[in-house]
Nucleic acid binder design. Structure first.
Length: 184
DNA sequence: TAGGCGATGACCT
DNA sequence: GGTCATCGCCTAC
């Protein structure tokens, strides 16, 4: 199960996430091992994390620091609450719309960082629970091959801060920079 | 029921 | 590179 979420996180790199009129090629992700991972929201089962215990390939959107939204793919299997946080991507469709949502930002930074990515895609809490392999709304298009991948510790987590479950496309300019939690 | 604290980003130096 | 805004959620009374 832990191995699965890591494999799923890696396989999401290079895939394309379609939002509301904007699509991004995923360049950076983090794996969260659900009930076995102290850094995961699902480590303790609450109303907020309930969605992650359900069926896989659903969208988990949560609010961070009161303002930002972050997007996760629930990867299952059911009851393990494994999920993959989408941290960054490259806008490949609907650049004009993304720039409209994020004025005065360089193209390479449009979807750099989880909060920025969610904003570029136009995600809201209404998208919570969307089935990502469906035909409508927010959807995920898997990539056939795997790009060259680098790994490192996850950004901003205070627990399990040294677990190298952050994966990114090697050398890609849209990948966000590493910042360790001050409490780790 | 109240207090503390983020899976962050923007802005300032 | 460092600091701070900001508020919903979780945990402990």
């Amino acid at each position: 199960m832990i191995v699965d979420v890591v494999a799923n996180a890696r396989s999401l790199l290079g895939g394309v996430l379609h939002g509301h009129g904007v699509a991004v090629r995923i360049t950076e992700v983090e794996a969260y091992g659900g009930i076995h991972d102290p850094a995961s929201h699902a480590y303790t089962r609450t109303a907020r994390s309930e969605i992650m215990y359900g069926d896989p390939w659903r969208l988990y959107v949560y609010r961070s620091y009161g303002i930002h939204l972050c997007a996760n793919v629930v990867t299952g299997p059911t009851e393990t609450a494994s999920a993959v946080l989408i941290r960054a991507g490259e806008v490949v469709e609907g650049i004009e719309l993304a720039q409209q949502r994020r004025p005065a930002v360089a193209a390479v930074s449009l979807a750099r960082g989880p909060g920025n990515l969610a904003r570029a895609l136009g995600l809201t809490l209404d998208d919570l629970g969307t089935y990502l392999l469906g035909a409508d709304g927010v959807r995920l298009e898997m990539s056939p091959g795997e790009p060259e991948i680098s790994a490192g510790p996850r950004v901003g987590v205070s627990r399990a801060a040294d677990v190298p479950w952050r994966f990114w496309v090697t050398g890609d300019p849209t990948v966000s920079s590493y910042r360790r939690s001050p409490r780790a």
